[in-house]
Design a protein around this nucleic acid. Structure first.
Length: 1036
RNA sequence: GCGGAUAUGGCGUAAUUGGUAGCCGCGCUAGACUUAGGAUCUAGUGUCGAGAGACGUGGGGGUUCGAGUCCCUCUAUCCGCACCA
């Protein structure tokens, strides 16, 4: 039988399904291994060849681990709540659940065709009530816990109440929103609403007025990682800042643990760096500056207490609550105008205006606690309300932003740090500030002469001693905003009583998403859930109308896979203690600051509560690169540009005998061409435009005594000769009609091949579906059928072919460059697709999809197949013992393949297989002793082919129940080494030298060789370097 | 602006981690077989040179017996963050 991949694919996919080959259960007799893919959002577009890249890699790894005796958990599911399904629902009225179901079905079909080893019995969908039951449950737990900074963990809210009843909140060291101090007595005298309000400030899931990213087009708020450059990541709609009451998760409480525990993870440095950046830890001091003439103070955060003597003014964020209090009557109007202006700006505008300096003086002054000088208090947008204390001490000499601000508003600049050995200059003459954190302190009283680092700690200590402030660590990480004004998400298990939120009882979970008549906001502007009937508790308390964001469902899915059918718990203790956490997680970098932060937080919270046994969810993480598309372009002729270009090419070289100029002006009228000698004006335009200008142009020409040629460009291609003829006649003084006959009025879209000269001057680049293009040559007939308006398309060819342009871009529907894996599987088979994707290059690297070379992979699989078949394609396997040469090839391959899989170097693995098959081919080896282990080796890469070969070798069970072949080093040992002999570092020839030969003998051997004399050129070597079993280098 | 990564034949890439640069595949050239086919097989293929040989891992410099690999510097591309005090 020939290598019939489609028959093999379907046969074994069927077999795996029927025999539940990939079903896994807890088995304490075997070590576990958990391999996880980032589950996909099932979009309407289906999978493209980029999606499976990571799945194939993790599948290879899973199968490899299984063959090594591990009990491998390798599940898959769907991140099924999300915007696109909802947008589609708004447009069509179809329930998102239906759309999602259809898409999931399609995804599943596509995934099945590639032959993954998922245990589909463990599938999860974030949108199914059995699943979001536990998302809601976790939310309730967060609502009922607070973060104790002293113990560094989440603790039950009841413990906090007990503490309040005993001592008030004075001794509580919590990560919380701002709360006024109160005593035990005050606590007991509060009514329930007041108490709830205080507790809300402590809860890990809390409701608060926050500045949010509001996207008017989507009608919802977005998380920071859902916004990029002031536009929504999904849809690209503008985003603005707005203050709204929202659910938030106090993820900032975990900032330090999220940061520190990064060190324990086997993730790439770049990814860890992105997370460190996102968490953004900075050490410094919190210092209070007294407001002049009052008892109030302004608290600021600074990382540079060493420069406090250089603080010559203060700046508040415009949204700071202190502003109204500090603004004096004469500055009130200007300040208020400034604040209104700042509020109106969208995130986008703020970002583009980063370099612009703006601000207003409040009229008030503060006292610098060290210099005791009066310094003015300003407000400016460059100080952010959400970071630090929303106020800064400005040190213009040593901070570039403060410097620009001081320069703009003429504020004083005082230098307090200098590079050793330099003499101070007047800061007013500087062009930029000295920001570096190194040097010697000056102008700072008793601290003069200290080195910056010493000064920071000394002044810090001084601040604490004087009671001005304290050492403080700040994080950039903000709490996660957790409400979305959408329909297609998890409902909050929350109802409102007396305006305060309460969670429903856990035994009432899941709180199922209600039906609505439309997926749009209500007339009152409430979220879509406002349309649901009876959306309230049995007692009549209204439920929350927002739903949870996308990351809610994806934050703990890896836990649910461990025990997906459990209706009593998120995950049983037994399952969690067996599977622990994810050993290998593969996915894209796009989740670096979103999902991967939220998941870690979520896991740490559950860890604090004792529901999970591991502190971190994902031990090792590998980011696969993106597979980009290779778009093809056709060049549509722009008739106006074309006509001008072609004419100009003729006119500029005096081909007409007279000189022409381009773009000639008479008054306000512009003509395309003019010849002063022949007194001819030429204008090229669309017929309709010409008719409009004909009259005034004729008048103008008549007035000057010029001849006027108005040339319509409709289908210019067909009338070039005619046009040129008319111009010639005009130049020669013959009387010519102003209009060329309109004999080509039909609209023929015309396209020009890529390498036609001047193409870039007269055509527009248009994406063309890549299925119409092969090797950059356009299939002209198919192209005409592609879209109705192209049926009459005409082409300017080169060598009778239409050559397309191309570019590497993101794979997307709109660029017509999407490659569907189904097509590749159909044409080449699943195993070829799998191997080819791995062969493309290193897993982490982004690369364009390019099928050049896929034939090589198919050829390789055929050659492998033929090792076990004779010339007539009959199975032919020898039971003779293998020769040493054959065993050497095999064991070399065992070593390489194992090493490469461990290192995730799948591309070099493929290369090793190719070498192996080539060598076995040369040896004409069809021995069972070699082919059997080889089949196991290749099974992770090419599971279908391997199963079939395994079967042909006489086995009844799946190859995945076999054992990974054992490496026998003894077959790899060589007795001699081909040693390069180099002169001055340049290799000249090689010598076979017995392994481990003593150095002096090697030297003798080398100098006994006549080739050595040739390269010595009669000179005596100055030095001979012999690195045993590596190289010999002779220095002359 | 800050941070990270990358740069090797015509193309995708490889190099035991400082030791023969270009493995494997594509493409290309030539040949074989053939009821010419986008099948299969064989040989060749970094550049210059008839040859000996010289040159060659983005550019320049350095360390070293020896550098694609280490150090300095510049350039280009990609990615992340971006008024974070």
């Amino acid at each position: 039988m020939d290598y019939n991949f489609s028959a093999i694919d379907s046969k074994w996919q069927q077999y795996w399904k029927e025999n539940r080959t990939y079903k896994v259960d807890i088995d304490i007799s075997r070590p576990k291994f958990y391999v996880l893919d980032m589950f996909p959002y099932p979009s309407g577009a289906g999978l493209h060849v980029g999606h499976p890249l990571g799945y194939i890699a993790s599948d290879i790894y899973s199968r490899y681990k299984r063959l090594q005796g591990f009990n491998v958990l390798h599940p898959m599911g769907y991140d099924a709540f999300g915007l696109p399904a909802e947008q589609y629902a708004i447009q069509t009225g179809q329930h998102p659940a239906i759309t999602t179901e259809i898409n999931i079905k399609r995804y599943r079909e596509q995934l099945d065709k590639i032959g993954f080893s998922y245990d589909w019995d463990r599938e999860v969908r974030t949108c199914s009530p059995d699943y979001y039951h536990w998302t809601q449950w976790t939310f309730i737990k967060m609502f009922k816990h607070w973060y104790n900074n002293t113990t560094q963990k989440a603790e039950p809210i009841e413990a906090l109440i007990t503490e309040f009843e005993k001592d008030g909140n004075a001794k509580v060291n919590a990560a919380c929103s701002e709360v006024e101090p109160f005593s035990a007595n005050e606590w007991s005298s509060m009514n329930e609403k007041q108490q709830q309000e205080i507790l809300l400030a402590y809860r890990l899931a809390y409701l608060a007025d926050t500045m949010v990213n509001w996207c008017p087009a989507l009608g919802t708020v977005l998380a920071n990682d859902e916004v990029k450059d002031g536009f929504s990541v999904r849809g690209g709609h503008p985003v603005e800042q707005r203050k709204m009451k929202q659910w938030c998760l106090r993820i900032s409480a975990y900032a330090e643990r999220l940061l520190n525990d990064l060190d324990t993870l086997d993730w790439s440095d770049s990814l860890k760096e992105i997370q460190r950046n996102w968490i953004g830890r900075s050490e410094g001091a919190e210092v209070t500056f007294k407001v002049d003439g009052t008892d109030n103070g302004i608290l600021v955060f600074t990382t540079r207490p060493d420069t406090i003597y250089g603080a010559t003014f203060m700046v508040l964020a415009p949204e700071s609550e202190l502003v109204s209090e500090l603004t004096t009557p004469e500055h009130k109007q200007a300040v208020e105008e400034y604040i209104t202006m700042a509020k109106r700006k969208t995130e986008r505008e703020r970002q583009t205006e980063v370099k612009k300096v703006s601000g207003q003086f409040t009229g008030s002054y503060a006292i610098n606690p060290f210099t005791e000088k009066k310094i003015p208090i300003w407000i400016s947008e460059y100080v952010l309300g959400g970071y630090g204390t929303g106020a800064i001490m400005a040190v213009p000499a040593h901070d570039s932003r403060d410097f620009v601000f001081a320069k703009t508003f003429g504020l004083p600049i005082v230098q307090t740090v200098i590079q050793p050995g330099e003499t101070p200059t007047d800061p007013a003459t500087w062009t930029e500030s000295y920001d570096a954190k190194e040097g010697i302190v000056i102008n700072s009283d008793t601290f003069n002469g200290l080195e910056v680092q010493e000064a920071i700690s000394t002044i810090n200590a001084n601040i604490e001693k004087q009671g001005l402030g304290r050492y403080k660590v700040n994080y950039r990480l903000r709490d996660a905003i957790f409400s979305r004004q959408r329909y297609w998400g998890e409902p909050f298990p929350v109802y409102y009583k007396d305006g305060m939120p309460y969670t429903i009882d856990e035994d009432k979970l899941p709180l199922e998403l209600p039906e609505v008549d439309a997926y749009l906001p209500t007339e009152k502007g409430e979220p879509p859930l406002g349309r649901a009937k009876n959306w309230q508790t049995a007692e009549g308390y209204p439920y929350e109308l927002s739903t949870m964001p996308g990351f809610a469902g994806s934050s703990a899915y890896y836990l649910r896979y461990m025990d997906p059918k459990n209706s009593k718990e998120l995950v049983s203790k037994e399952a969690n203690e067996y599977w622990e956490n994810v050993d290998l997680y593969i996915g894209g970098t796009e989740h670096a600051t979103g999902h991967l932060v939220y998941s870690r937080f979520w896991n740490k919270f559950l860890f604090d509560l004792g529901y999970v046994c591991k502190n971190e969810p994902f031990k090792k993480l590998v980011n696969q690169g993106m597979i980009q598309g290779r778009s093809s372009f056709v060049y549509r002729i722009n008739p106006e540009k074309m006509a001008e270009y072609v004419l100009w090419e003729h006119l500029k070289d005096k081909k007409m005998g007279v000189e022409f100029v381009r773009n000639y002006r008479i008054g306000n009228s512009k003509f395309d061409f003019f010849s002063p000698d022949a007194k001819v004006l030429i204008e090229v335009k669309k017929q309709q435009s010409l008719e409009k200008v004909a009259e005034p142009y004729e008048a103008l020409a008549a007035e000057k005594g010029y001849k006027l040629l108005l040339i319509p460009i409709q289908d210019f291609m067909g009338i070039q000769d005619e046009v040129l003829h008319r111009i010639k006649e005009a130049i020669e003084g013959k009387d010519v009609p102003a209009f060329v006959e309109k004999d080509h009025i039909e609209k023929f879209p015309a396209f020009v091949s890529k390498n036609i000269p001047g193409r870039e001057h007269f055509s527009d680049e248009i994406h063309v579906d890549i299925s119409l293009v092969e090797n950059d040559i356009l299939n002209v007939e198919e192209f005409r059928k592609w879209q109705p308006h192209l049926s009459n398309a005409r082409f300017l060819l080169e060598d009778e072919k239409y050559v397309c342009g191309w570019a590497v871009e993101k794979m997307s529907k709109s660029m017509y460059n999407v490659v569907n894996p189904d097509d590749i599987v159909e044409k080449y088979g699943a195993d070829t697709l799998r191997i080819y994707e791995m062969f493309l290059g290193p897993l982490e690297q982004s690369k364009p999809w390019d099928t050049n070379g896929i034939d090589g992979v198919l050829k390789f699989l055929r050659r492998l197949w033929r090792l076990a078949h004779d010339a007539n394609n009959e199975v032919c396997i020898s039971n003779e013992p293998a020769t040493n040469d054959e065993l050497k090839v095999l064991h070399k391959t065992i070593k390489k393949i194992s090493d490469n899989i461990e290192k995730f170097s799948f591309n070099t693995g493929v290369s090793a297989f190719m070498i192996c098959v080539n060598e076995l081919n040369d040896l004409k080896c069809n021995k069972r002793e070699v082919l059997e282990p080889l089949t196991i080796l290749i099974a992770p890469y090419a599971p279908h082919t391997a199963e079939e070969l395994w079967h042909l070798l006489g086995h009844k069970e799946s190859v995945f129940n076999a054992q990974w072949p054992e490496l026998k080093e003894e077959y790899l040992v060589e007795d001699s080494f081909t040693c390069p002999i180099s002169f001055n570092g340049k290799t000249r020839f090689t010598l076979d030298i017995p392994l481990n030969m003593p150095k002096d003998e090697v030297e003798k051997l080398v100098f006994a060789n006549e080739q050595t004399d040739r390269y010595l050129h009669g000179k005596t070597p100055r030095k001979v370097i012999i690195v045993p079993n590596k190289i010999v280098n002779i220095v002359i």
